[in-house]
């Protein structure tokens, strides 16, 4: 009779689970083409942690990726002069913020008042 040690059983069980689940998932991903996009959270904008551009302090803005002390200071100064920001596109008009940099950090901001 076939005798398997504990570790051999473990390896066989893992391979069996991978084959079953992997095959099932491959089938589902092919059968329902919208499923890969649904599962793919890594590239989804919905998982970006957003900072409120109106309530954040300069220090909090500095924690946002691609925003340094200079840009944070410019945003706070803009807010002080023009009041709260209703549309993030307003940030484009700030002198000293490059369009390429704006595109990078804007996805981490929100403008809820």
């Amino acid at each position: 009779m076939l005798y398997l040690t504990k570790n051999e059983l473990r390896v066989v069980a893992v391979l069996a689970v991978v084959i079953c689940l992997g095959s099932g998932l491959t089938y589902l991903f092919k059968r329902y083409p919208y499923l890969p996009d649904l599962v793919n959270l890594l590239d989804s904008p919905s998982i970006y942690i957003k900072t409120n551009v109106n309530s954040a302090t300069a220090e909090e803005l500095e924690e946002v990726p691609y925003i340094g002390p200079y840009t944070a200071g410019k945003i706070v100064e803009f807010r002080r002069r023009h009041g709260s920001i209703s549309d993030l596109e307003q940030l484009r008009s700030i002198k000293g913020i490059r369009p390429t940099n704006f595109e990078r950090f804007v996805q981490y901001l929100e403008a809820d008042q």
Binding site: G22, V39, L41, I47, I49, E59
Partner: peptide, 30 residues
């Protein structure tokens, strides 16, 4: 290919779970 499928799902699940925790009130502060 089957292992890659498991990697895809587990990676997204891991990132999704971490994201949910990051959204809890008082999850972090500077």
């Amino acid at each position: 290919g089957l292992f890659a499928m498991m990697v895809k799902v587990s990676l997204n699940l891991m990132v999704g779970t971490a994201f949910l925790f990051s959204q809890l009130p008082g999850a972090y502060f500077y």
